[in-house]
Design a protein around this nucleic acid. Structure first.
Lengths: 343, 343
DNA sequence: CAAGTTTTGAGGTGCGTGCCTCAAAATTCG
DNA sequence: CGAATTTTGAGGCACGCACCTCAAAACTTG
C-alpha cells in the first residue's frame, strides 16, 4: 500500500502533528524534526494524496482572464475557450471567469489590476500590451500573493510571473521562411500589415520575419509595417496606396492576430494579382480563407491549449507546485489547407 | 455553497442511500426515485466532488502502453514520455507502465493482449500494426472491461476503442503540399521511402501525399514506395539504385516515423544533388537535420501530447466519463528549422 | 389476504489530509 | 535553578463521497 501521513510519522519517529507541521510549513518545528521527516519522505517515498488534500482544504480556486475589449475573431475564440474551461473545471471547485477591459489606457488597466484582491482572486492571466504601469501593477499583484500569467501578449517577460504564448520572434521567422519558400525565388516586395506596431509581440514577429527574409531571401524586400489600428477605412486606404505604389508586391504578411480587416482590404483592392498570403491565428475567417486558397499559410498558437495551459499553471502555482514546463510550451503551428482539421 | 449529495437527497425528497444508488447505478431503484433524483440534479446543479470520489473509492488506476520492440528514436521518445507520465501521475494513484513486445507476429501480439486481465490492468494503449488477430484481441479486451486506445498506429478504427494520433491521410497530404510548394515548379521525381507499406498508416500517408501531388503538382511524379524493412544495408541498396535510375529525382519523402536509416542512406549516396527532404516526426536525428538544413520540413505528432492524451482518455473511460474531444485531437505539426523550439 | 419481493431509509465506517486545541515535554534564558 | 518559551504529541472534527448492513416500508403475486 501507498504510505500515508501516518506511515510517514512512524517512519520519521515523530507524531502526526509534527508531520503536518512540516508538510504544511507551519511554525514551531525543530530543525532536527524537519530533517528526520524530510529523510523519511525520501526513504519511504511518501507523496501526499492530492484528492485527500483537495477534499480537506475544500478550497475554491478563482482564476480570471483579463482580456481586451477590442478584438475580432481570435479574441472571440479565446473567450469561447475560457468559457469551455469554466464548464470543465466547475467540478474541480475552480471558478474561471473572463473579463474584458479597455487596454488603450495603461493607467486604466493598471488600476483594474491593482483593485484585484488576494481574497477575491487566486490568479489572473493578463493579456495586455506592454506598458510600465501594467508591468508594475502585475508585480504588485504577485507581491500580494496573486498568481499572474502573462497571457499571449507582447509584454516584457516578468521574472515573477509565468508566460503562456509562443516565442514571437520564432513565429515571425517561421512566417518569413514559409513566405520566402512559397514565393519560389520570385523577386518582389512583401507588404507587412499590423494592427499596431506598439505591441512588443508585433515588433518581435517583424524582427523574426525580417531576419529570415534578409538572410535567406535577398531578392525579397519587406516593406515598412502598415498599421491599421483596427480601422477598416484606414486599412483599405493605406493598403490600396501601398499596393499602388508597389506594383511588384508578391506577398502579404499580416502579423497581428486578427487578419480579417487587413486581408479583406487587400482582396478588395488587389485586382487580379495573385499574392502569397501568410497570416497569424486560426479563426473562422482564416480557416475559410485557407480553404479557398486565399491564404497560403497560417502561423498559429492554439487558443484552447493556451487557456488550459494558463489555468494549469495558475493551479500549480496556487498549490505551490512547479508546473511541468514540457507540457506547457505552446507550439508554433503551421496551418495549411491540408492540415486544417476540424473536430 | 456548492450542493453536496446530502443537499441533493433533500432536494429530491429521498434518502442519501437512494441518491447513492442512483449516482452509482446500483440496483433496486424505482423509476420514480431515479427520475426525481435526476430532476433534482438538474434543478440544483449538483456535481460530484471528484476529489471526494477519488478519496472514497481509493482506487489505483493501472494503465499500460503496449509498444513495439523494434524501432528507433521516435520509439525511444515515446518510451521517455511514458516514463515522464509515470512520474507525473504517481501522486494521482495512477500506475503507468510501458511494455515492448515483438509486433512481427500478429498471433503473438494477440496472445499477449488476450492475457491481459481486467483486474490487473484498467486500460491499455496499443501501438501495433493492423491485423485481424490483434483487432479481435482488442475487441475482446473491451468486452472484458479493459479500456483500449489505438495508439499512433495504422489500425482500422474500432468503434469501441478510442484513437490517439493524427489523420494519416491529412498528414501525407500536408507533406505533399510542403514538398510541392518548396520545390517551386521544378519538375522531377519524388522518392518515397517507408519502413514497410504493410502498415495502414503508411498507406494512408502515401494516399494523402499522392492526392496532393497529382492534383496540384502535375509536373512532379512520385515513385513507387521503397521499403527498407528497417535494414540499413537494404535501405542503402534500394535507395542507391533508385537514385541512379532516376537522375531527375528532386525530393525525398520518408513516410515512416523513423527517418534516420533511409535518410542516412540517401545522404551517403546522393552525391552533390540538392534534394528537398520531408520526413515525419521530431527526433534527435530529424531535429539535427533540420538545423543543418538537410531536412526541409518535418510533419510531426507530439509524442508527449499523444501519451498524455491516451492516459486522459483511459482515465475518463475508467470513470465512465466522456473525454473532451477538443482537447484530445492530436495536431499535424509542421516543423521547420525556424519553429524548431527546444524547452 | 398472506407470503414473498422489491424498494427505501437510517446509520455507520473509512478514504487521507488539513486544521484546531490543549497539555506535556523539552529547551532556552535570566 | 526557576521561569518563560519553544517544541511535541495526542486527539478530534471536518471535507464529500462510496460502500455496507439491517430493518422497515412499499409493492407484487398467488
Amino acid at each position: 500500500m501507498r504510505p500515508t501521513a501516518r506511515d510517514l510519522a512512524e517512519a520519521a519517529g515523530v507524531s502526526l502533528a509534527t508531520v503536518d507541521r512540516v508538510l504544511n510549513e507551519r511554525p514551531n518545528v525543530s530543525p532536527k524534526a524537519a530533517r528526520s521527516v524530510a529523510e523519511a519522505i525520501e526513504r519511504i517515498g511518501f507523496m501526499r494524496n492530492p484528492a485527500a488534500v483537495a477534499l480537506a482544504r475544500n478550497k475554491t480556486y478563482r482564476f480570471r482572464f483579463v482580456l481586451p475589449t477590442s478584438g475580432d475573431q481570435y479574441l472571440a475564440e479565446l473567450i469561447a475557450r475560457a468559457g469551455e474551461a469554466t464548464e470543465a473545471l466547475r467540478a474541480d471547485s475552480t471558478d474561471v471567469e473572463a473579463v474584458q477591459i479597455a487596454m488603450s489606457d495603461p493607467h486604466h488597466v493598471a488600476k483594474y489590476l491593482t483593485a484585484i484582491d488576494h481574497d477575491t482572486v487566486d490568479g489572473v492571466a493578463v493579456m495586455a500590451p506592454e506598458s510600465p504601469q501594467v508591468r508594475d501593477a502585475m508585480l504588485r499583484l504577485v507581491e500580494r500573493g496573486v498568481r499572474v500569467v502573462q497571457f499571449l501578449s507582447g509584454q516584457e517577460r516578468l521574472e515573477s510571473a509565468d508566460y503562456v504564448g509562443v516565442d514571437n520572434f520564432a513565429a515571425g521567422a517561421t512566417a518569413g521562411k514559409i513566405t520566402g519558400r512559397f514565393l519560389c525565388e520570385r523577386p518582389g516586395k512583401i507588404m507587412v500589415v499590423a494592427e499596431t506596431m506598439m505591441a512588443l509581440d508585433s515588433i518581435q514577429r517583424r524582427l523574426g520575419f525580417d531576419s529570415i527574409i534578409n538572410a535567406q531571401f535577398p531578392h525579397l524586400e519587406s516593406l515598412p509595417s502598415l498599421e491599421t489600428y483596427g480601422d477598416e477605412k484606414r486599412a483599405e486606404l493605406i493598403i490600396r496606396r501601398t499596393l499602388e505604389h508597389n506594383p511588384d508586391t508578391v506577398a502579404v504578411y499580416v502579423l497581428s492576430s486578427e487578419a480579417r480587416i487587413p486581408l479583406t482590404a487587400v482582396w478588395n483592392t488587389q485586382g487580379a494579382r495573385a499574392l502569397t498570403v501568410v497570416a497569424h491565428e486560426r479563426t473562422p475567417f482564416s480557416e475559410q480563407a485557407l480553404m479557398d486558397e486565399r491564404i497560403d499559410a497560417v502561423i498559429a498558437q492554439d487558443p484552447g491549449h493556451a487557456v488550459r495551459s494558463a489555468l494549469r499553471i495558475l493551479r500549480a502555482r496556487s498549490d505551490h507546485r512547479e508546473p511541468l514546463a514540457s507540457q506547457e510550451r505552446i507550439r508554433i503551428e503551421v496551418v495549411l489547407k491540408e492540415n486544417l482539421q476540424f473536430d
